[in-house]
């Protein structure tokens, strides 16, 4: 292990998040077993109060997860000089086998806690709390992801030894490498560019249909998910190179640096927000048959589709700006 302040901060943060989550899961089990909204008993009143605590804790968990995602990448960046051959976050994440899984689990847990909060928000709008058991089962379902994230991240950070030779982002995300990443990059640039913008506009169009006519929620949701994957792929294969103005530099992390005006932060956030709001609209859709949620859910979906449209507009603005105003001339390649 490297005794680095950033590492200590990440370990501390994830330990706290996990222990809060374990507590929530414990409360979840009690609620699943004992919940009875008809009862006015003191136990029931106590359980109702606990739901406030769990909601609050989960909101904090989401906030912390989001911050720790960026801190994690940032720390990987800062540590890179310690590893021969690592020039940025991409290299230090590759120092051991836990780096990239930890990053992916971090993103997944952000998405999952966001979705849970949407379900929770929906449930809290109906006086009979119709989703109470469902949402606590969901909580029990997502807890393992967050715990896995904590342990994989700990495995990665504790396993870091300076001077281990790693590949830097130049080799990891370059076309020669025989990895899944290489497949992304092998996509013809124009094609993936078209696919990326097509997925944005399809998602926005479907979002607009949900917003205006409350129709096509599932298609919107599925499109959002595909769009999320496309965005990640596009971030590596197309968008980043325009910001770096280097046709061979595909690193998705360097755009978080100040040299590129921190453009990576709004870009990442827009992608995450679009994914959570789009998926959220679909996740709550099956519950619209419930009487007390019948009127509530379309309103929430409308709000979510609006958020998604705004996030995607931001994405178009940033990516479009990068591509249009880049000094990188594509004709040469």
């Amino acid at each position: 292990m490297i005794f680095h302040p950033g590492i200590l901060a990440l370990l501390l943060g994830s330990a706290l998040t996990s222990s809060m989550l374990c507590y929530c899961a414990y409360e979840g089990v009690r609620i699943i077993r004992c919940w009875d909204i008809r009862s006015g008993s003191e136990r029931q009143l106590g359980l109702e109060r606990r739901t406030y605590l769990v909601s609050m804790v989960m909101s904090y968990v989401l906030g912390f997860q989001l911050l720790s995602l960026f801190l994690f990448i940032y720390t990987a960046d800062t540590l890179s000089p310690l590893f021969v051959g690592a020039m940025c976050a991409a290299g230090s994440l590759n120092v051991n086998g836990f780096g990239y899984p930890a990053l992916i689990l971090k993103i997944v847990s952000c998405l999952l806690s966001g979705l849970w909060l949407i379900v929770n928000f929906t449930d809290n709008k109906a006086p009979d709390y119709p989703l109470i058991r469902t949402k606590y089962w969901l909580l029990l379902g997502i807890a393992p992801f967050l715990l896995a994230e904590t342990s994989v991240q700990a495995g990665h950070l504790l396993g870091l030894r300076p001077n281990i030779i790693t590949s830097c982002c130049g080799t990891l995300f370059s076309i020669d490498a025989n990895t899944v990443m290489a497949d992304f990059l092998a996509l013809p640039r124009l094609l993936s560019q078209i696919a990326f913008f097509a997925s944005i506009f399809i998602t926005m169009a479907l979002g607009l249909s949900v917003y205006l006519k409350a129709k096509g929620v599932y298609s919107f949701s599925i499109a959002s998910f595909i769009h999320f994957l496309m965005s990640v792929a596009a971030l590596i294969s197309v968008i980043s190179i325009y910001f770096y103005e280097l046709p061979t530099h595909h690193c998705p992390f360097c755009i978080l640096h100040s040299e590129y005006g921190y453009v990576g932060y709004p870009l990442y956030l827009a992608i995450l927000v679009s994914a959570v709001s789009g998926l959220g609209a679909g996740v709550i859709n099956p519950f619209r048959k419930i009487d007390s949620l019948h009127d509530v859910i379309p309103r929430i979906q409308k709000l979510l589709s609006l958020i998604s449209i705004l996030a995607n507009s931001l994405l178009v603005l940033i990516a479009g700006y990068g591509i249009l105003f880049s000094n990188l001339s594509m004709a040469a390649y």
Binding site: I37, S39, G40, S41, E42, E48, N124, D128
Partner: peptide, 22 residues
């Protein structure tokens, strides 16, 4: 406060087991 047992209606609306939020 919510009663331990019994029913309350306010302006024709049953509010007995309404959670605190509502």
């Amino acid at each position: 406060a919510r009663p331990t047992a019994g029913r309350i209606t306010l302006q024709e609306r049953e509010i007995t087991s309404l959670p605190e939020r509502f």
